[in-house]
Design a protein around this nucleic acid. Structure first.
Length: 778
DNA sequence: TTTTCAAGAATTTTT
DNA sequence: TTCTTGAAAA
């Protein structure tokens, strides 16, 4: 086997060999950054640095796992095991577990995910009787997140005239009150949100010099990956920990900073040299990933940004295919283009699905792509969006487990106190909350002391509450003798949660039951893996893992699939063929990020990231019209398309079109869109060449047939539209719930069309055809 | 208290 | 178009 140092180029080698002192590695896209990081760590270990003394912070758990296994292959499994490696959130959550009591949190503190936070804020806003239109929980959370990431505590907030003024101006003068209540409630519940994991770590390190010294001494060598996307809170943690030994190595690429919306501060990387003395700089500029065309096309884009560090990315790789640009009529067409291209490429080049990825700006765009892939029977996997652990049935199950571990967890309690339904309604919960706030206790404490507080609830409800509390307590006792898997199983049986889902009897219910089973399997796996690693397999640790898990962490070996994800999620990944869809103004760049130069620059970096994921070829596409909230809107091509040097592009026109619309599509509606003429009339110049070159004879200058279109739409969409047209008075229909009946009257139009039906049971009902799933019997 | 239906909002990006 | 929310009915 060749020595690992021989697998590196000069700069890479220097970076690996640089052992001590502050250093920064500016790593262009595809420049072998991970390789340098892993070998650097391996090299440290080979040179007498104890793995216990190395801290490596990555952007995702997946990156940490991969790096760890690559290091293990150089230095051996048992050595690599002791490395501290993970995301900021997971590493410091782990540290907080052992230190949290110093700052008033129990060691079994809960981690609130975004949904928990939003729910809590919604409750608080309601309790404070604020207008919920002014105070939208999500926005309020975003604001609080900003404070926390900038280390602005409630007190600091009230001491800052600027912040008070800013919130007043934006119509939210009560932000301080909400912020305070939110922090207090989290504290009382023994819960930390994502931002708290960093904020409280900072608190711990600042307030307790002994603790700081302990971890400074422990982490003698610190590495931070994706440094361009660290926020202020993370920045301070790193500074504090590195202060003693100054062995800090940060890696990143300012051109790939794409997380400013969640507080990432690009200045952290731009100013690194000012923060430490005698910083060594390494620039990895050779790209090993992508073809020349891709590297240079990407360069031509990022050049347009003013704020950036000086570097020149180049590659020795082959020229490669040009970037394909595809104009389509609609999102449906765009999807078909993607599916067709994947299909063609697979056939021509004997490829499997997993070499393709489709990237988009917003999650909502995935649907059209999914539909098209499904029609072509191409298997795919979506990353992000609603992840496994965010599904209702999973969150419900987990909420029980959370409550067992930490009965003060308010959000978990509110989630399950009446699920499955046990007759404890909103009014009762409100009363409990008021009492809990009044006595400064958790709701569970109130439940345990019902006779001491006068809640003005009737005795029936009181018994229900007592039963619930007793059930939770008995689980807690059981938990002492059972492992995580057994206790979960017991909870599911006792609460009849699965039975409750099955009761719905729908096909979706079946898959939801399967999800819960899957969760059980997951717990079993977790126990086994932890045993292998000789680590604790407690329920508490499992819940922590789950709270910080991302979609990538739940990946199963399966058949090869096309990957679908947002560009943000694709950071750090690479794929041979990359489709970037929806290159339209207001979508990409997003309408929300077109106000300032820096916002546009971030969007451009996002585009840069997207292009540079590709090894072999990039496909860009945009639609001329797109559905938004059920309405068809016209779209303009993205400015980014013009920013790519044209010599790297190849324009393709659609072969044929199926315009998916409920509306009667008249050719004329395209007339005010000049590009459209390419399609039916004369193509503009650069398109002529391409269509000639491709012998694209499938363009027959033939307007789409309206009749056909309509049929396609109807059969392709839900069938109720069909009934809408066909149903007449006198029809005998069957309804899933109510059984058979006769249509005795029709009213309304389109989506509002209703049928009055006399059922065999004798009941007469008015049903909206849009929703009612009726089968026509006669 | 629970269920049902109609009206209204909703789309950046995520640990 | 689809999801969430709120009021009214059961």
């Amino acid at each position: 086997m060749t020595h690992y140092l021989d697998q590196l180029n000069d700069v890479q080698k220097q970076a690996v060999l640089q052992k001590d002192g502050p250093m920064i590695i500016i790593a262009g896209a595809g420049s072998g950054k991970t390789r340098v990081l892993t070998y650097r760590i391996a090299h440290l270990m080979k040179n007498d640095v104890d793995p216990f003394n190395i801290l490596s912070l990555t952007f995702t758990n997946k990156a940490a796992r991969e790096m760890k296994s690559r290091i293990a292959s150089v230095v051996g499994q048992s050595e690599a095991k002791n490395l501290w490696m993970g995301t900021f959130h997971s590493v410091f959550a782990r540290i907080l577990r052992s230190e949290s009591e110093k700052i008033g949190f129990p060691s079994n503190f809960t981690i609130y995910d975004t949904q928990d936070s939003v729910r809590l804020l919604t409750a608080i806003i309601k309790e404070l009787q604020l207008e919920k239109d002014k105070y939208k929980a999500k926005q309020v959370l975003g604001r609080i997140s900003q404070y926390k990431n900038s280390l602005i505590t409630v007190r600091a907030y009230y001491n800052s005239p600027e912040l008070l003024e800013a919130d007043k101006l934006s119509g939210r003068p009560q932000m301080g009150k909400i912020y305070k209540e939110y922090v207090d409630r989290c504290f009382k519940a023994g819960a930390m949100d994502f931002d708290d994991l960093l904020l409280r770590t900072n608190e711990l390190l600042t307030r307790f010099p002994v603790v700081l010294a302990k971890y400074q001494d422990r982490f003698r060598y610190i590495m931070v990956d994706e440094y361009q996307d660290t926020n202020h809170s993370q920045y301070l943690i790193v500074r504090a920990l590195a202060d003693r030994y100054q062995n800090i190595c940060v890696v990143g690429d300012d051109s790939q900073s794409i997380y400013s919306f969640r507080g990432a501060n690009i200045q952290n990387i731009l100013n690194f040299q000012k923060d430490y003395d005698d910083v060594k700089i390494f620039k990895l500029e050779q790209n090993y990933r992508s073809s020349k065309v891709i590297v240079e096309a990407a360069n031509s884009v990022i050049e347009k940004n003013k704020t950036k560090l000086d570097k020149e990315i180049w590659t020795a790789n082959a020229e490669g295919e040009r970037v394909i640009v595809m104009r389509t009529y609609s999102e449906g067409d765009e999807g078909r283009f993607v599916a067709d291209s994947i299909f063609e490429n697979k056939m021509q080049n004997q490829l499997t699905n997993d070499v393709f990825t489709v990237l988009y700006r917003t999650n909502a765009q995935s649907r059209a792509i999914e539909d098209a892939l499904r029609k072509k029977d191409i298997k795919y996997r979506i990353y992000g969006g609603l992840s496994f652990y965010q599904r209702k049935e999973i969150k419900d199950t987990l909420a029980y487990l959370r409550l067992l571990v930490n009965p003060n967890d308010e959000e978990a309690l509110k989630r399950v106190i009446n699920y499955p339904a046990r007759g404890i309604g909103q009014t009762t919960i409100d009363k409990l909350t008021v009492a809990a706030n009044h006595y400064k206790k958790s709701i569970f404490d109130i439940l345990l002391n019902l006779e001491l507080v006068d809640l003005k609830i009737n005795s029936g409800t009181k018994i229900k509450l007592e039963n619930f509390a007793n059930m939770i307590r008995s689980f807690q006792i059981e938990m002492e003798s059972k492992n995580a898997f057994e206790i979960t199983d017991a909870v599911l049986k006792k609460t009849r949660l699965i039975k409750d889902i099955e009761l719905e009897g729908t096909p979706e219910a079946i898959s939801r039951v399967e999800n819960v089973q899957e969760l059980l399997n997951g717990i079993k796996d977790f126990i086994e893996v932890q045993k292998e690693k000789e680590e604790e397999a407690s329920l508490s640790y499992f819940l922590e893992d789950v709270a910080l898990a991302t979609d990538f962490d739940n990946e199963k070996d399966d058949i090869p699939r096309v990957s679908l994800m947002t560009i943000h999620l694709s950071k750090g990944l690479e794929f041979p063929y990359v489709f970037i869809v929806g290159l339209e103004e207001n979508l990409f760049p997003s309408a929300m990020s077109m106000n300032t130069r820096s916002e546009i620059e971030e969007e451009r970096r996002l585009f840069y990231v997207a292009i540079t994921r590709a090894e072999k070829q990039v496909f860009l596409s945009y639609a001329q019209s797109r559905y938004r909230w059920g309405k068809l809107i016209d779209c303009e091509p993205s400015r980014f398309l013009e920013e790519i040097d044209e010599k790297y592009l190849k324009y393709i026109t659609p072969k044929k079109s199926i315009v998916q619309s409920n509306k009667f599509i008249d050719q004329n509606i395209f007339d005010d869109i000049p590009q459209h003429k390419i399609r039916f009339k004369k193509p503009v110049q650069r398109v002529i060449q391409k269509s000639k070159a491709r012998k694209n004879d499938s363009i027959k200058n033939e307007p789409p047939k309206n009749l056909k279109k309509l049929t396609t739409t109807i059969t392709g969409k839900d069938k109720t539209n069909l009934f809408d047209n066909n149903l007449t008075v006198g029809n005998i229909v069957e309804h899933a719930k109510f059984g058979r009946g006769e249509v005795i009257h029709l009213e309304g139009n389109g989506n509002n069309k209703k049928a009055e039906i006399k059922f065999e049971s004798g009941n007469t009902k008015k049903l909206l055809l849009q929703f009612a799933k009726l089968n026509i019997i006669a």
